[in-house]
Design a protein around this nucleic acid. Structure first.
Length: 417
DNA sequence: TCTGGGGTCCTAGGGCGA
DNA sequence: TCTGTCGCCCTAGGACCC
């Protein structure tokens, strides 16, 4: 059996964890640059759709007394770690699936009353982190997702925990689940399925295998088996990332190549730092620049370039050199750029560095990067930068409604009066 | 004025060497 | 020496997830 533990309206719950008066009040959390709504409390869901554009909904927020927060990732990341730590004490096998979800293996726990065990987990997480969770338990990962949806939807009846442990319950749950709500069936696939008369998860399980394989590849076939109660997807081990990206939309458009180069250099340094943190190198670098696709009245241009590096690296200096080279190749004058990014690819661990016969990195880079990381980590922020980055840090994201970093910054600890 | 960011996996198709 | 086939690798594009 597998359990899926999912934090309820996670970002909104994090904001509430340190501000109890907000319990029961409508809350939304915005994306970077306060662009659009990325999380809503239950109370806000009736008034604001997911992805709503902030400036278009300002009036609604005001009228409905909805509390608005800019996203506060240091806080959410820290609370997520705390939740996962609590969960780890309930099973030796746990897969952290995302910032607010984890799968847990309950094999060997079958003799227990799983509903009671689920409730014990839920209560412990609530007690230690103040984050409410819902728990779905079932024989496969895909079914545990459905069980979780039921637990969340019928919270008062289920107490936030639902176990799908019989064929009857499974059939009933599958008939209740709309095809577009099935984990792994996105917008395109659900449209295609609905056209052929498949409107529920149960209908999907009745389709011929060959048809599913042909139309939805092995991914669809695996999912079908999982929904039929045959466990195919196992818990996954922590893996090193295959790509590391830093991409941003700008608060206002950028047209000149110097400013773009400064931004992209900073993004490259952020990628390099993430690479060093996970002890790996990259040997390919992609950069891209976009104009604002939402502004149909403005001239559009979008281009990316992939560069193969001569040797694996995680040096700020090397990556920034290639960023400049790439930008010179794709930049076109006369456009207002809204978004840009750097993606490090071809990632290999420190232990498997492929050395080039003819050209290798200056060994001083490695030492320098270590010193930079140590100083920056001790000072808590980016004090040491490359010379072609902006030392004044005038590129601040729009975050008009940011809450405190209650758990990760000494200066922002909760004050008790 | 203002519309997020960061990932994974699979398939098709072309190049290329055995 | 030429040709056909097979399989591997790479890339682009498309689907999905949170």
């Amino acid at each position: 059996m597998y359990a899926l533990i999912d934090c309820n309206n996670f970002y909104a719950s994090c904001e509430r964890a340190f501000r109890p008066p907000l319990i029961g009040k409508p809350i939304v959390v915005l994306s970077n640059n306060d662009g659009c709504v990325i999380a809503r409390s239950n109370e806000a869901k009736a008034h604001v759709p997911m992805g709503a554009v902030y400036y278009q909904y300002k009036q609604v927020f005001k009228e409905q007394n909805i509390h608005v927060f800019s996203s506060n990732y240091p806080l959410y990341g820290d609370l997520s770690n705390r939740v996962m730590n609590v969960l780890s004490s309930f099973s030796p096998e746990i897969e952290i699936y995302s910032i607010d979800e984890a799968f847990m293996s309950l094999s060997g726990f079958e003799r227990l009353d799983l509903t009671c065990y689920g409730k014990a987990i839920k209560e412990k997480v609530k007690q230690l982190t103040h984050i409410p969770v819902s728990i779905g338990i079932a024989p496969t990962k895909a079914l545990s997702k459905i069980a979780n949806k039921i637990a969340k939807k019928y919270d008062s009846r289920t107490g936030g925990v639902y176990v799908l442990d019989t064929a009857e319950k499974r059939a009933k749950a599958l008939k209740w689940t709309k095809i577009e709500d099935v984990w792994g069936i996105g917008r395109k696939f659900s449209q295609k399925l609905i056209k052929t008369g498949v409107s529920t998860a149960f209908d999907f399980t009745q389709l011929p295998e060959e048809y599913v394989k042909k139309e939805f590849s092995v991914v669809g076939l695996r999912l079908q088996k999982e929904l039929q109660g045959i466990s195919i997807l196992k818990l996954e081990q922590v893996k090193t990332k295959k790509a590391i990206a830093t991409t941003r939309s700008f608060k206002s458009n950028i047209s000149d190549i110097e400013s773009l180069n400064e931004r992209l250099t900073t993004f490259a340094c952020s990628c390099a730092e993430k690479l060093r943190r996970q002890n790996s190198f990259c040997n390919m670098l992609m950069i891209f620049i976009h104009t604002n696709g939402h502004r149909k009245d403005q001239a559009q241009y979008s281009k990316n370039i992939v560069m193969h590096l001569p040797y694996p690296t995680h040096s700020d200096i090397t990556l920034s050199r290639y960023v400049t080279k790439g930008l010179n190749a794709i930049y076109k004058k006369g456009y207002a750029y809204k978004k840009a990014g750097v993606i490090a690819m071809g990632i290999s661990p420190n232990t498997e560095k492929q050395i080039n016969l003819f050209e290798n990195e200056n060994p001083k880079h490695e030492v320098l990067m270590k010193v930079m990381d140590r100083i920056n980590s001790r000072l808590g922020m980016k004090k040491i930068k490359l010379a072609n980055q902006n030392l004044q840090k005038t590129w601040i994201m729009r975050q008009d409604s940011l809450s405190c970093r209650y758990t990760t910054d000494w200066n922002e600890l909760l004050k008790v009066q």
